[in-house]
């Protein structure tokens, strides 16, 4: 299917069409925090922002998710209702790419029915990034401001209109359903979109050459850099909770009256409690080991298993870190270390 054009004054009707067909998720401000929330057809779309504070992973991998329910002292297990069809609108290419990276993990060996169930029923409509943030480094880890990986449709803001490019079958179907409001895109439109993508890529000011890092990390296991880079770490969960590729979780039981549920929630490898054994022994006793694990997981273990770096360069962990622990800087030190 060819690319089309959506005039900006028809954005509202596009949103309304999407919201009628499926549950629409869009970046919404909760207080001062931008995150993807369910919206109805009447929402006023606002897609002008650098990126959301909480990544789009929260739609397919919510912070808390019921695995099943039961009644206390009984043995029947009740499954949660099936997943609804969803559309995500306005996803930045880095967040979408993160989803396709995390897909590897959740479909590895054993399929994860909750994640994959949501993922299959979700159509991701992305918006090419035109104003990369100061800490964006997506082009260093295999992405880019107009990367299409993980997206079903890519929008590009041409000023007066959006260029709409369906990328997958799911995306095509979605566009066909909204067919009438689109105009034909001219070759000029395609060219100017291409130009905008290149301009955005040129605006990315931070970079790191990641080649060789996965191979080098195992040799730096006992290196002094881990102590060095983790000294200031507070051991909080900001970098992992806000990371679009971090996927580790905890499973807990909760009881309310006579009803109970088993649910899973985001967990962070930066918490001491994460690996703590019941005996009191902790295989990762300090922030040094935890930081080392975090970097290794993203840039070494994940690469060994799935042949892709589990980092999309969205820069959230850098911008949100309260003590300026900077993953680019850590990688730089890894490269320089002997």
């Amino acid at each position: 299917m060819d690319s089309m054009k959506l005039s900006k004054d028809k954005l509202n009707s596009f949103v309304a069409i999407l919201a009628e067909q499926k549950q629409l998720y869009m970046p919404q401000a909760e207080g001062e925090t931008l995150k993807y929330s369910p919206v109805n057809a009447k929402v006023q779309p606002d897609l002008v922002f650098s990126n959301t504070a909480v990544p789009a992973k929260s739609v397919v991998f919510p912070q808390v998710e019921t695995l099943f329910r039961y009644e206390v002292e009984k043995t029947d297990i009740k499954m949660p209702a099936g997943e609804e069809e969803r559309v995500l609108l306005g996803v930045r290419p880095c967040d979408a790419r993160a989803m396709s990276i995390v897909d590897n993990l959740f479909s590895w060996d054993v399929d994860d029915p909750y994640y994959l169930g949501k993922r299959e029923k979700t159509i991701v409509v992305g918006l090419a990034c035109q104003k990369p943030g100061v800490n964006c480094f997506c082009s260093s880890v295999g992405g880019g401001p107009a990367s299409t990986e993980g997206l079903d449709v890519l929008l590009t803001d041409l000023g007066e209109s959006f260029l709409v490019k369906p990328l997958t079958e799911k995306g095509e179907k979605l566009c066909q359903a909204a067919g009438e409001i689109f105009e034909e895109a001219s070759s000029d439109d395609l060219n100017s979109a291409e130009k905008l993508h290149q301009e955005a890529a040129a605006l990315i000011s931070r970079s790191i050459e990641t080649g060789g890092i996965p191979e080098k990390l195992p040799g730096l296991w006992e290196s002094g850099i881990w102590k060095e880079v983790s000294n200031a770490c507070l051991g909080c969960g900001i970098c992992t909770f806000l990371c679009p590729t971090c996927h580790c979780f905890d499973i807990q039981d909760e009881i309310e009256g006579f009803e109970g549920r088993r649910c899973r929630m985001w967990d962070s490898c930066m918490f001491g409690e994460y690996t703590l054994h019941t005996s009191g022994h902790n295989p990762r006793p300090t922030r040094r080991e935890r930081t080392r694990n975090r970097i290794n997981h993203k840039y070494n273990y994940f690469v060994q298993k799935f042949d892709v770096i589990a980092c999309v360069g969205c820069g959230r962990c850098i911008s949100s870190c309260p003590v300026n622990i900077d993953i680019i800087e850590i990688l730089q030190q890894v490269k320089e270390a002997q």
Partner: peptide, 12 residues
């Protein structure tokens, strides 16, 4: 309701 329980406030 926007708290994500990263416990940064506690740790800092």
């Amino acid at each position: 309701s926007s708290c994500i329980r990263c416990y940064s406030c506690r740790n800092v």
